[in-house]
Design a protein around this nucleic acid. Structure first.
Lengths: 187, 187
DNA sequence: CAAAAATATGAATAAATATTCATATTTCAG
DNA sequence: CTGAAATATGAATATTTATTCATATTTTTG
């Protein structure tokens, strides 16, 4: 019950952020969207900054790739493929979250500690790529460039799928896009 | 003189957007950053929404690729390379603008007409890729995927260069990143 | 150079929105 | 069922920030 209301608040916040950006977020709109009274928000959060930071931490936590342990020992191209497919699905599913996260990090509401977190996924990817280079499977190119390719492509493609009514994420599009990515970075 | 002040206002707005996001933009801060009085802003713009929309249109106009006509008849891979190099340079140079543009489009300040514009660059790229497919130089893959790769990589890499103190855009990194991109999309 | 026109100032005011709190409703132990 | 305790409400208040405007400064004109 209480939990349910919390989730409604978070969902409302995400949804509104997608529509009007963090710049346009009003506590009253959040309440309305979540079908509660404005005052109720303040039973759950000290203030707006608190609410946004709580949401930020929740999203961070959820995106921690539980997947990593499962795939640790597969060949690199398979691992990359699995991460690619998973990330793409998540990005598409959670497009609103991503908009929020991106905006949040340069909004005036970020607490200092929020800024430190992040980038576990990126770090793992980096390690993976580095290992691939050692094993001669992946081009010996600055990891930062490789990472930019993988993550940039991923984000952009997912945004495209979400925004374009005619596109849908299918096994085929996952495979096709991964093939491109792999061809770019493989030795 | 008048022009100079206008530019100072726009520069201040961009710079602040990069620091605090559109959510944190205050007319008073813009004025301070531009070294003018708050009231002066209202001699140049009817209100905040107007200011932001004016900046948006200015940025849109400037990013129109004058380059296109010059390179129309070069081989596709060379054309792509030139666009890649130019775009990457521009993205890095103008990172603040990009942050602004991205935020602006989902802020409550967008005027209806602002939303229609955009995407000349993207359309040209699409045509180029399509032509490349016909001529068997580029993989026969959904253009949207190819575009996502090129633009996504581009954006992400440029952001990385801007945010990472140790990175700098060099001929080498341009060439290296383009090579990756080309390898991904070439037949 | 004087006076009119144009431009700029920032404290005062208005408007938007966050936050509080007296009151109402719901939940639940006994 | 009953009455604390917990939870929720939304109008009232406080705060923040956009906007105005009476006044000051600078520029232009003749």
């Amino acid at each position: 019950m209480k939990d349910d209301k919390l989730n409604r608040i978070f969902d409302a916040t995400l949804s509104l952020t997608g529509k009007v950006g963090i710049a346009g977020l009003k506590m009253s709109s959040i309440a309305k969207e979540a079908s509660i009274a404005t005052g109720t928000l303040y039973l759950y959060f000290k203030n707006k900054e608190d609410l946004l930071n709580a949401l930020y931490f929740k999203l961070q936590k959820e995106s921690a790739p539980a997947l990593i342990s499962e795939i640790k020992n597969l060949p690199i191209d398979i691992q990359l493929y699995k991460m690619w497919a998973l990330a793409l699905k998540k990005l598409v599913e959670n497009n609103l979250r991503i908009i929020f996260l991106e905006q949040f990090l340069i909004s005036p509401y970020v607490s200092a500690s929020s800024k430190e977190m992040d980038s576990r996924f990126k770090n793992y990817l980096k390690g993976l790529l580095e290992k691939g280079k050692k094993e001669n499977q992946i081009k010996d190119v600055d990891s930062n460039i490789l990472i930019a390719l993988v993550i940039g492509f991923l984000r952009n493609f997912s945004t495209h799928i979400v925004n374009d009514k005619n596109s849908k994420l299918s096994e085929k599009s996952i495979d096709e896009s991964f093939a491109l990515c792999w061809e770019a970075i493989k030795r």
